[in-house]
């Protein structure tokens, strides 16, 4: 007989895997839709980085604010598990989270927000953190390595540290910004930059979700209880293009990058879960694509 705690662990692991695969297949489906000319505009997929928001999911609560960025599909799906609403938003169909106005990178739902201007959301997240201070909730803001070029990032860090704000900065350091490798755009280190503001910094190199949670769980808890900012820097990898078809890195280099998908592919039940996620997403794509166009009252 399996002990209850073990059952919980097993179902948690299965839920993580399903969520990872949902995000992976969602992103692959988007690139496919673009390639077939069925999407207009642009999109930024999080292929390779899916595990970051998945690892954070049980550590965040509904009262927390989440500020996402241009590469936000995984952040959204991890919070809401709503691929239909997100796809409808991206395709401008009925049921779109923001009526098709915002599209891939401008989404507001409950306490979740994304916007497409780099760096803008750090001070805004600090404001949400000030609002939340003392409540036990926090403001979590995602940021890429390249976005550390923006001055507003430092203004926000200074404020957050000075005023003891419960601000959780999640850095997805994938070593590249659009076409620019980190060595060409970032002097020094993100760790030292955080420390310069007397903000705690923790780096995560693991892609193993339970391991990551064990490392960051207590730290995140202390953001809530001690009301102090924290920078979590994930060393991660972008396996896809920046947006679509614009990867300047050699394909062989990209193929050699670490990928949780490859690492997990031997695990028990992976093949079935993978197939199920692929089919789920394919069905959603068919269903959403057949919906009527979204309506927006400001245009009526």
């Amino acid at each position: 007989m399996t002990a209850p705690a073990e059952v919980a662990t097993v179902s948690r692991e299965r839920a993580d895997l399903d969520l990872l695969l949902l995000i992976r297949h969602f992103e692959l489906a988007l690139l496919d839709l673009f390639a077939r000319g069925e999407l207009n505009g642009t999109t930024h997929t999080c292929l390779g980085q899916e595990y970051v928001p998945v690892a954070l999911t049980p550590l965040l609560v509904a009262e927390d604010h989440v500020f996402s960025n241009h590469r936000g599909h995984g952040h959204y799906l991890a919070r809401f598990r709503d691929p239909e609403g997100l796809l409808a938003e991206i395709m401008g169909r009925e049921g779109a989270v923001c009526s098709g106005v915002g599209g891939s990178q401008h989404i507001l739902r409950d306490r979740y927000l994304s916007t497409g201007v780099q760096g803008e959301s750090l001070p805004v997240a600090a404001g949400a953190a000030l609002h939340l201070r003392g409540s036990g909730a926090l403001a979590c803001v995602y940021i890429g390595d390249g976005t550390w070029g923006e001055g507003s990032v430092y203004e926000a860090l200074n404020l957050a540290s000075l005023w003891n704000l419960p601000l959780l900065v999640v850095v997805e350091n994938n070593g590249i910004a659009q076409s620019t490798p980190i060595a060409r755009q970032l002097a020094g280190t993100i760790r030292d930059r955080a420390h310069a503001f007397a903000i705690r910094h923790h780096e995560i190199t693991s892609t193993h979700i339970p391991d990551i949670r064990a490392q960051i769980g207590p730290l995140i808890e202390s953001v809530r209880t001690d009301s102090r900012p924290l920078v979590l820097e994930f060393a991660t990898h972008r396996l896809g293009p920046h947006s679509k078809g614009d990867d300047t890195r050699p394909a062989s280099l990209v193929r050699g990058l670490p990928d949780w998908y490859r690492d997990l592919s031997g695990a028990d039940g992976f093949t079935e879960a993978d197939r199920a996620a692929r089919e789920l997403v394919a069905g959603i794509v068919r269903e959403v694509a057949a919906r009527p166009l979204s309506r927006w009252s400001a245009c009526a």
């Binding site: 207009n40 395709m91 098709g100 106005v101 599209g103 166009l293 979204s294 245009c299």
Partner: peptide
């Protein structure tokens, strides 16, 4: 007098 929506039809 509006933001510029993403979806083509809007």
């Amino acid at each position: 007098d509006s933001v510029i929506p993403t979806a083509a039809h809007l």
